[in-house]
């Protein structure tokens, strides 16, 4: 399976998924760390992919949704944005609701 096919499968198979450098527990980039922290504060489960452990995904993810940098947050298969957008949504209180709804909670 090509990396793009794997990404497609990951973002459609997981309602909330974060592509990041490192892991939520051991982030290896300040931007990834902040995005993961914001998601954890939402109190819902989310999937993540450590792009540093997967050179193919590292290389092809920027092409997938025309987004050149990491981290990248996808909700219901759609690119929400990188670190700055994730934090902005979190600050406005919208992220928690988006994640909650995607995880099957009521609005």
């Amino acid at each position: 399976m090509s990396a793009l096919d794997r990404i497609r499968k990951q973002v459609t198979g997981n309602p909330v998924i974060l592509y990041m450098k490192g892991t939520p527990q051991m982030p290896q980039c300040g931007f990834s760390s902040r995005a993961a922290q914001a998601l954890m504060e939402c109190g819902e489960e989310f999937a993540y992919v450590n792009v540093l452990m997967d050179p193919e995904i590292f290389q092809d993810l920027p092409k997938f949704a025309d987004w050149p940098t990491f981290p990248q947050l996808y909700i219901n298969g759609e690119l929400i944005g990188g670190c700055d957008i994730t934090l902005e949504l979190h600050e406005k209180g919208e992220l928690q609701q988006m994640v909650h709804e995607a995880r099957g909670g009521s609005a």
Binding site: K21, G22, P27, Q28, C29, G30, F31, S32, S33, R34, V51, L52, M53, D54, P55, F58, Q59, P62, C83, L87
Partner: peptide
């Protein structure tokens, strides 16, 4: 606008075959 985050060292551990 908010401050940018501190580094976590990741640029040192790029995978071997980046673009």
């Amino acid at each position: 606008v908010p401050d940018s985050p501190p580094c976590r060292g990741g640029s040192k551990v790029q995978p071997k075959s980046p673009t």
